[in-house]
């Protein structure tokens, strides 16, 4: 039972961390390597919210708004000129991530920051005493996933975004303002990353480099998911399960590289990953 909960909550956390990257990759066709930095920005929004004396949960909307606003600036001034040069965009976003990390260091110092607990304690569930927060994080993953899917399926912008994902040239030919779609998508992706950063604060230390460790896993999951939300959820579940099972029964050291190795294997066998269905 403990194992099942570990798998589900691990998958939920991976999903929360990856979804912002997926949104950007789907529409812009670039990998935002500053994703880790946006996770960090989000976590520091929780620090700021605490300093302002706000309710810890208020950090979630605050992080989304600040993350999206900074994402908009990054899109306008750094990403937009590089749309035709995806490889350079990787370098630029990686560099941007470093710059943001350093700016945070300058502003807040190298130290680990204290953030208030969003949710503490444990709950008794099906005979095991389990971390309440991990269950909250799983719930948050489900909510974010459903809202994201609804936005993609049910709104005008979602429709435009799907059109851009399928065939950008044709979408532009039909009069869809693809530049605006790209901007809004990047802002949404950055906002979601910052939101994920807040959700990570009860699970990890808040320091200027905290996002880096999550970036590779998120990158691998998005590569395997290939811009499909359902495929991302499946990938999180399968790889999250592999990570937990290998950590539990073989070795936590092998478990910690499980996602990267398995993703490489899946992509080798099937370049489109889990998204073919």
């Amino acid at each position: 039972m403990l194992l099942i909960l570990d798998v589900l909550t691990t998958a939920g956390i991976l999903f929360v961390v990856s979804i912002g990257l997926l949104a950007v990759f789907g529409v812009l066709k670039i990998i935002n390597f500053a994703h880790g930095a946006w996770l960090t920005i989000g976590a520091y929004c929780a620090v700021i919210a605490a300093e302002l004396g706000l309710n810890p949960w208020a950090a979630l909307p605050l992080a989304f708004v600040i993350g999206a606003a900074l994402g908009g600036l990054a899109e306008l001034f750094i990403i937009r000129p590089l749309y035709r040069r995806p490889l350079d965009a990787i370098l630029a976003t990686w560099g941007l991530g470093i710059v943001i990390g350093q700016l945070i260091t300058l502003g807040f110092g190298r130290d680990v920051q204290m953030t208030p607990n969003l949710f503490s304690g444990t709950v008794e569930i099906l005979g095991v005493d389990y971390s309440a927060y991990r269950l909250v994080a799983l719930g948050a993953a489900l909510v974010i996933g459903v809202v994201f899917a609804a936005a993609m399926e049910g709104t005008r912008l979602g429709l435009s975004a799907r059109a851009v994902i399928m065939n950008e040239t044709l979408a532009r030919g039909l009069g869809i303002d693809t530049v605006r779609v790209r901007l809004v998508t990047f802002m949404a992706g950055a906002g979601l990353a910052a939101l994920a950063g807040v959700l990570l604060t009860p699970l990890t230390s808040v320091d200027p480099n905290m996002g880096v460790g999550w970036l590779i896993g998120a990158f691998m999951l998005v590569m395997v998911a290939d811009a499909s939300l359902v495929a991302l959820a499946v990938a999180c579940l399968v790889f999250g399960a592999a990570q937990v099972l290998i950590s539990t029964f073989v070795s936590p050291i092998l478990g910690s590289i499980a996602i990267a190795v398995l993703a490489a294997l899946v992509l080798r066998v099937s370049p489109k990953g889990f998204s073919r269905a």
Partner: peptide, 19 residues
């Protein structure tokens, strides 16, 4: 139990500890 130096996911190890 061990994790790599920069490992941050203690989920499985903590579950083993509780077990």
């Amino acid at each position: 139990e061990y994790l790599p130096m920069d490992g941050s996911d203690w989920t499985a190890i903590i579950s083993k500890l509780k077990d």
